[in-house]
Computed example of a mutant assay.
Amino acid sequence: MFIVALTGGIGSGKTTIADRLAELGAGVVDTDQLSRELTADGGPMLPAIREAFGGTVFQPDGRLDRSALRRLVFDDPQSRARLESILHPPIRQRMLERIDRLDTPYAVIVVPLLFETGQQSLADRVLVVDVPESVQIERVRKRNGLTVPEIERIVASQTPREERLARADDIIDNSGPPENLESQIQRIHRRYLDLCQASPHETNTSR
């Protein structure tokens, strides 16, 4: 199957783009959603998280305190690396399983930490959703209620914007109003349909 890796910084609009490509017929696998599945109430990764970080990142009823965990890992690079070592392998495995089950012209894997985890090797094309850092900060502040310093720490932990753009095969500019997106999405969708028809190949998720 032809695989597109969709990435971008926090607040860039990855979900919006992925949802629209899904409406147009692409098969979408979102690694953030897989992470939430693995860490939901009773999720299989909760025991490992509790063992690594203790009860301070859990609520009294046993549910994961995502805000406390986020503060911890973005204040401490070692804690972030420990959490990633717990979550990234099962997320990758579940992602590959979902790709194998798709029956769509092409697959879109939404991976915020694409370059940080080296998973661009799974994809035929890398699609970057791009916005200026100032736009990221304002959108995340309104959406999540985080403080500007909290958002800046998250942005600083991700691949720099310039590097993402340099490593992209395709770019969608999401810095403007929503109505500017549709023509870009339609164009990129048609391009991917053309590419997967021109280069048919067997699904290969062992790359």
Results as ranks from 00 to 15, higher is better:
Val126Pro: 03
Thr15Gln: 03
Asp173Asn: 10
Pro200Glu: 09
Arg207Ser: 12
Leu102Ile: 12
Phe53Ser: 09
Asn204Tyr: 03
Glu84Ile: 01
Phe74Gly: 07
Asp65Phe: 01
Lys142Leu: 12
Val108Met: 08
Thr56Ile: 06
Gly8Phe: 00
Val111Ser: 09
Ile17His: 06
Phe115Ala: 07
Ala68Arg: 05
Lys14Asn: 08
Thr147Lys: 07
Leu127Phe: 00
Glu150Gln: 13
Glu150Arg: 01
Ile185Asn: 08
Arg153Thr: 05
Glu182Trp: 15
Ser79His: 13
Lys142Val: 11
Ile49Ser: 05
Thr15Lys: 06
Ile49Trp: 02
Asp100Phe: 00
Leu114Gly: 00
Leu34Pro: 01
Val4Ile: 12
Ala198Arg: 11
Thr147Phe: 07
Gly25Tyr: 01
Val131Trp: 06
Thr147Asp: 04
Gln119Glu: 14
Asn180Gln: 14
Asp124Ala: 13
Val73His: 04
Asp170Ser: 05
Pro160Leu: 04
Val4Asn: 05
Glu37Asn: 11
Gly9Tyr: 11
Asn180Thr: 14
Gln136Glu: 14
Gly43Pro: 02
Val155Phe: 05
Asp75Cys: 11
Ser199Arg: 15
Ala26Tyr: 00
Leu34Gly: 04
Asp194Ser: 15
Ala198Pro: 06
Thr117Phe: 04
Pro47Glu: 04
Ile154Arg: 03
Ile137Gln: 09
Pro178Met: 07
Val148Ala: 10
Thr203Lys: 15
Ala5Trp: 07
Asn204Met: 12
Gly55Phe: 12
Gly43Gln: 08
Glu179Pro: 01
Glu23Phe: 07
Asp30Thr: 11
Gly25Thr: 09
Ala168Ser: 04
Ala48Val: 06
Ala123Asp: 03
Ile91Asp: 04
Val57Arg: 00
Val131Thr: 12
Arg101Trp: 06
Arg125Lys: 08
Asp103Gly: 15
Asp169Arg: 02
Asp100Trp: 08
Asp19Val: 15
Ser206Leu: 14
Ser175Met: 05
Gln78Gly: 11
Ile99Leu: 15
Pro90Ile: 14
Pro77Met: 09
Ile188His: 13
Val111Trp: 02
Asp30Phe: 11
Val110Thr: 08
Arg125Gln: 09
Ile137Pro: 02
Asp32Thr: 09
Ile49Thr: 09
Pro89Thr: 02
Ile3His: 08
Ile99Asn: 02
Ser67Met: 06
Leu114Asn: 04
His189Gln: 00
Ile185Lys: 03
Leu96Glu: 10
Ala81Thr: 07
Glu150Cys: 05
Pro200Trp: 14
Arg141Met: 10
Ala166Ser: 15
Pro112Phe: 03
Thr31Asp: 07
Thr16Tyr: 14
Leu24Phe: 05
Ile171Arg: 09
Ala40Arg: 12
Glu84Gly: 00
Asp75Asn: 12
Thr7Ser: 13
Pro178Asn: 02
Arg141Val: 06
Pro44Glu: 13
Gly11Val: 11
Asp169Lys: 03
Arg141Asp: 02
Leu38His: 09
Ala22Asn: 06
Gln158Thr: 05
Arg20Val: 13
Pro60Gly: 03
Leu122His: 03
Asp41Tyr: 15
Ile49Phe: 12
Ser121Glu: 14
Ala123Pro: 00
Gly54Ala: 04
Thr39Pro: 12
Leu114Ala: 07
Met45Gln: 14
Gly62Phe: 01
Asp61His: 05
Gln197Met: 05
Leu72Tyr: 02
Leu181Thr: 02
Ile91Leu: 07
Gly176Val: 10
Asn144Lys: 01
Ile172His: 00
Arg187Lys: 13
Ser199Asn: 15
Ala81Gln: 12
